[in-house]
Nucleic acid binder design. Structure first.
Lengths: 341, 341
DNA sequence: TTGTAAGCGTTATCAC
DNA sequence: GTGATAACGCTTACAA
């Protein structure tokens, strides 16, 4: 754990000034080919790497991009990270990744930490909607304090006018439900998501709308609240399946709802779609291996991430251009689990 | 995008010197209660956050901990990240996460980037073994250059004497195989992992050893190389299952091997364990939902990560203590897929 | 084509 | 208790 090699050391050893070394490192300004060679040699000899801290301090801008997600163990977000990282790293930036674990307080804590790091830009999937007056004010200020471009991803925050990449949750949920309707189901249940979240409410609204348009009734007892959580969904679906009477078709609000739902279904040895049909918004991981008909709403999650990263990076060169709202498309992939038999 | 608030601004507004503000921030040195209050007020008013860059530069040590993994979309590593992040963040450090995508060149690129960040410590799951002379020399130097504590996680690098958290892959693979033997299988096949990796070879060796001890033969054609990759495993298992004759029991070398294997098996509508039995080293995600008997070697992956993080953080206070080698235990959880029927 | 010097925002060492 | 002042390692005018 010795002192790190500095630009000064390199300059001395190469018999030049620090300025020259700096010019060699950054490839700007004039420097004689021969001198440059010599400097390079010395840098390699000592495995010199310029200090990012010193550089950001001097340049007054860092190369770090913040990535703040609500979950990191959800494969949905893992895939998103892939997309983001590929774009960000290709552009020479460094990623600082944190998970809020769906906790607003952690969102704030992490944003402070990112502020200290003076991140160059932020890609943000909020832990919640921040829609009441107090929360809204807080998140607004927290983001403004960052003083850098922000891209909101997947979960929009109303009234916050940042670049944004989302899916149309209403339309998506409607398509899912319509798929069940088209298959001939008349009584359709739902595993709703977290209704505190806009995306949860939108998906539910899309579900309702589809039923309404088809003039199908929705019984209150056919609505389950799974909170976008596998375990909770499992427990509630399990309970429902133990009733004498329940819907034979379901709309599932996300991948974790699907996982919990399937667990309960398989536990009772029900067959899909013979005993119970469904369509899911997003798909569980490894769904391809079971040779079972799992119908789902497909969206290119990796692309979702890439788009967000591109939006952010473009924003660096054009800080004051018009705000961009990207909506990535989604479509139902019918695999058979929607069928009525 | 205005200039950030600095310690100087706070000092001025509070009518004190920067030193005093610094003392208030860090809670060291004497400062009158009343003064401290006043400074706090001003800091809050401006949402002041000290610049991490300036601080590291001045202190000559950063609060960033590097986390370098070979894959980030593999749930195995997602779970590991959870464990690491929980410990690291609780201790007030910041995580810099990167994935090498199993590419040694990327390992080096990322290590350089982390060197520039002057990371305080590194948790490292190498992309490969670096066991030939040239590679070994390179990784050795790259890690030394970092000039910070390093913990090698999950995939040991021979001859590199760093703190280390691993599983006993040989023993683990032996237990898996023994489980099949105990169930009465006489002909057991294997989906080997990446044999370029020590962990791949160890698991294979454990498999062989178990057979040998039981005096069971191993046919060459019963060995499949799945490269720890789902798609590759799928293709090769698929091919094997199309042969007129193949083993009715398998040892699978990791979670992705299991996924690929199951995909091929289910595609042919084979039943587990009636048509084909298996035991897997690690388990696929969502394995609990299918109500199917998936026997696997359990290790506490989250704990693996936590231990590594703890080792690293303890190392900060005791840079020269003896090198620690932690081996986390594992055990087979018999679910039924090992049975011979 | 190169070097000198100032400055970036902190912390640490002294004085007072 | 408090405040100048000098680092820390880099970039960037400005000179030469």
């Amino acid at each position: 754990m010795i002192r790190n090699v500095t630009i000064q050391d390199i300059a001395r050893e190469a018999g030049v000034g620090k300025t020259t070394v700096s010019r060699v490192i950054n490839g700007n300004g004039y420097v004689k080919e021969e001198t440059a060679q010599r400097v390079h040699k010395v840098m390699e000899k000592y495995h010199y790497q310029p200090s990012a801290a010193a550089r950001s301090l001097s340049r007054q801008e860092s190369d770090m991009i913040g990535l703040l997600l609500p979950e990191i163990d959800n494969p949905f977000f893992s895939e998103m990270i892939q997309g983001i990282a590929s774009v960000v790293e290709r552009s020479g930036f460094t990623v600082m990744l944190s998970s809020s674990a769906n906790t607003p307080e952690r969102d704030f804590r992490i944003l402070e930490s990112m502020h200290r790091q003076r991140i160059r830009g932020l890609i943000y999937v909020p832990a919640c909607d921040y829609d009441d007056e107090e929360n809204y004010g807080q998140i607004k200020v927290a983001l403004e304090q960052l003083g850098c471009p922000v891209v909101i991803l997947d979960r929009p925050i109303a009234r916050l006018d940042y670049d944004c990449v989302t899916t149309d949750n209403f339309i998506g949920a409607m398509s899912c439900t319509q798929t069940l309707i088209d298959a001939g189901h008349k009584r359709i249940g739902v595993v709703a998501g977290n209704m505190e979240l806009f995306i949860g409410r939108e998906r539910f609204r899309g579900f309702q709308k589809a039923l309404e348009r088809a003039k199908l009734p929705l019984k209150k007892e056919d609505i389950l609240y799974g909170e976008f959580d596998k375990q909770i969904t499992y427990e509630r679906v399990k309970e429902m399946l133990s009733r004498p009477d329940y819907p034979k078709a379901f709309f599932l609000s996300n991948n974790l709802s699907e996982a919990g739902f399937l667990k309960a279904v398989f536990e009772r040895n029900l067959r899909i779609p013979e005993d119970v049909a469904f369509v899911s918004f997003d798909k569980i991981s490894n769904q391809d291996i079971y040779n079972m008909p799992f119908t789902y709403l497909e969206r290119n999650v990796r692309d979702l991430g890439e788009q967000a990263a591109q939006l952010l990076i473009r924003r660096f060169d054009d800080p004051d251009g018009p705000v961009q709202k990207v909506v990535v498309i989604s479509k139902v992939i019918p695999m058979g689990s929607e069928r009525k038999v």
